[in-house]
């Protein structure tokens, strides 16, 4: 391990993901053999420090949502372990099913779908208060008012049903629900990608304010690089179930090391940018049922060599110039 890694696993670490793997399928079939298996997440190691916003970027199918579900306990890793504040998630769940939910919460991508259409906002927001806290009726009422105030919603919204809200308002309710039980870490899974740009900015600003007020830690999952750059302290770029590059947001966006990060950045359209970098049509994701032996990105990479095709680069194959900046690449764009 290099210096950068040692530094991240210091005392201020809130969440440690080590060697986590999640396989879908692969179960034994009735008549011999096994069903085909997909590795949604593979040997993934990551630390989340207290008080930071860690961005996870990647395209559809790269495993970022699976990672999010593993962290909040909606799904269990096939192997590897996740440690939150010194406690193994699996042990925590065995002791008390709700212990994790008190500390880690989740904000969903589709704000309207994450609210039960047949429940009032009061019922929805009261659920975590009832099940995760010891508040009595008056205490819950007080907390509800606080929550609505925190997300800038009028108190009369409590008696309404989810379909009466716009996407932005529904997402505020989703955020209020995540805040209800006073968690330390919130996993935001594409929290703004279903929203219009003007509303997106409102929600991003709100998240920023809440983080300061309540001393929260965020894992911010998104496919939108510009959003991630504007809110995150550190960024992990995922490709095909693994981390391609990890580093402080500033150094990663200024000088990407992995060719995939570079491709992502140059593909992103921006106001005023005319020329986008475009690959050939043949550039596609590898077949998840039949993954390549070497680097998964090699087929699309113009820096690939024999080594890349045959061997899998370690996640810290290329240490960057800044501490904590690593890339899983044999031929990084910048050599340390």
């Amino acid at each position: 391990m290099n210096d950068g890694r040692k530094k991240t696993s210091g005392e201020d670490t809130l969440l440690t993901i080590s060697g986590v793997e999640r396989i879908f399928g692969g179960e034994r079939r009735l008549f011999g053999g096994r069903a085909p298996a997909v590795h949604a997440v593979q040997s993934l190691s990551l630390n989340v420090r207290k008080g930071e916003t860690l961005g996870v970027v990647g395209e559809s199918g790269c495993g970022k949502s699976t990672l999010a579900r593993l962290v909040v306990g909606l799904d269990d890793p096939t192997s590897g372990k996740i440690v939150f504040d010194g406690e193994n998630l699996a042990d925590l769940a065995r002791k008390d099913g709700n212990a994790l939910a008190r500390k880690v919460q989740y904000v969903f991508q589709d704000p309207v779908a994450s609210l039960n259409p047949r429940k009032t906002i009061r019922t929805i927001l009261e659920a975590p208060l009832k099940h995760l806290t010891d508040l009595d009726k008056d205490g819950r009422e007080k907390r509800l008012t606080e929550l609505l105030q925190a997300v800038n919603l009028a108190p009369e919204f409590l008696e309404r049903y989810p379909h009466e809200f716009s996407g932005g308002q529904a997402q505020r309710i989703g955020i209020a629900r995540a805040l209800a039980a006073g968690p330390e870490l919130i996993v935001l899974d594409e929290p703004v990608s279903a929203l219009d740009v003007s509303v997106q900015a409102q929600v991003l600003n709100l998240l920023d304010d809440l983080k300061k007020t309540f001393g929260l830690t965020y894992i911010f999952i998104s496919h939108d690089l510009s959003v991630v750059e504007s809110v995150c302290d550190r960024v992990a770029v995922m490709y095909f179930g693994r981390i391609a590059e990890l580093g402080p947001a500033q150094s990663l966006f200024e000088a990407p090391m992995h060719p995939y990060t570079d491709l992502l950045m140059r593909s992103a359209p921006a106001p005023g940018r005319h020329e986008l970098m475009a690959e050939d049509a043949s550039a596609e994701l590898p077949d998840p049922y039949n993954p390549p032996a070497g680097c998964a990105f090699a087929a699309r990479c113009n820096r690939k060599t024999r080594t890349c095709l045959d061997n899998l680069p370690a996640s810290d194959q290329a240490p960057g110039p800044d501490s904590g900046h690593i890339a899983a690449c044999y031929h990084p764009l910048i050599e340390a």
Binding site: N116, A127, L132
Partner: peptide, 9 residues
């Protein structure tokens, strides 16, 4: 919303 209910305890 079912996942959300699970996370609400």
């Amino acid at each position: 919303f079912v996942d959300a209910a699970r996370l609400s305890g």
